[in-house]
Amino acid sequence: MTDRIRVLLVDDQELIRLGFRLVLEAESDIEVVGEAADGDEAVRAVAALAPDVVLMDIRMPRADGIAATRAIVRAHAATRVLVLTTFDLDEYAFGALDAGASGFLLKDAQRTELTAAIRSVHRGDAVLAPAVTRRVIERATRGGGTANPLPPDGANDPLGDLTERERDVFLAIAEGMTNTEIAQSLYLSESTVKTHVGRVLAKLGARDRVQAVIMAHRHGLVDPRPGRS
């Protein structure tokens, strides 16, 4: 039996935490290891419990979810943060991504979407609500300010230093494919895909998959039409 994914719930509303707990504890591969009611509590709880994934609310008293996410990501690189909010607004989406969140979902996400998102960020994938993904890409391709700034493009060819296989992986990331989907598409093992993804991000100078997606769209490497991102 594989180890279960250890999750910390962070929300200032007790009933919401209870709802998440009931949903997640019904999953055989997920374990809720603790709860926190604000950002300060969340930072302390991560230090004490070392969860794999933090479900993080945005609007909370004292330290908010963005500040807590930034502190957690800086101090605990192995812990992934999945932000949930009722507010579908750019300032929260970009703020959370800039703070280092691995995912952003709205609280009206379906149960299956939530559990799938937890598993995805635990595997190292990035998760964005479709509406948020569209606006991240739109803002980046317009050249407007983004809270998740891109690294310099060097010779303006993001594929220049990539091997042929790494190019394939980069384009798959840009299409929003998970490691599992990339492995199936390219007939590789997931461990090999993870290695390629790490090398791609390092060569591009991208902090995470979100930056890689933005870079690909900015350079016109993928179809920007709805449903393609």
Rank of each mutant, 00 (worst) to 15 (best):
I66M: 03
E113K: 03
R74F: 00
G103M: 06
T85R: 06
A26I: 00
H219D: 03
R6V: 05
R199Y: 13
A216G: 14
G143V: 04
K107D: 10
P158Q: 05
E166F: 12
A71I: 06
R225H: 13
M56Y: 05
N156P: 00
V213C: 01
G124A: 11
A93K: 09
V7T: 09
E25C: 09
V136A: 07
F170V: 05
D108Q: 09
A48Q: 13
E175G: 07
R4Y: 00
T163N: 06
D40P: 00
S185H: 12
G34K: 03
R167Q: 15
A26G: 11
E35L: 01
N156Q: 09
L22C: 05
K194N: 09
R167D: 09
P158F: 13
V127L: 10
P224L: 11
S185V: 13
E91M: 12
F104A: 07
R44P: 00
D52I: 02
H76T: 03
A206L: 07
A45G: 01
A202G: 00
L55A: 08
T85I: 05
S185D: 11
D157N: 14
R228K: 13
I214A: 14
A63L: 14
M215F: 04
M215Y: 07
L159S: 06
R142K: 08
R135T: 09
L114E: 02
M177E: 05
V43H: 05
V222T: 12
T69Q: 07
R80A: 15
D90Y: 11
D168A: 08
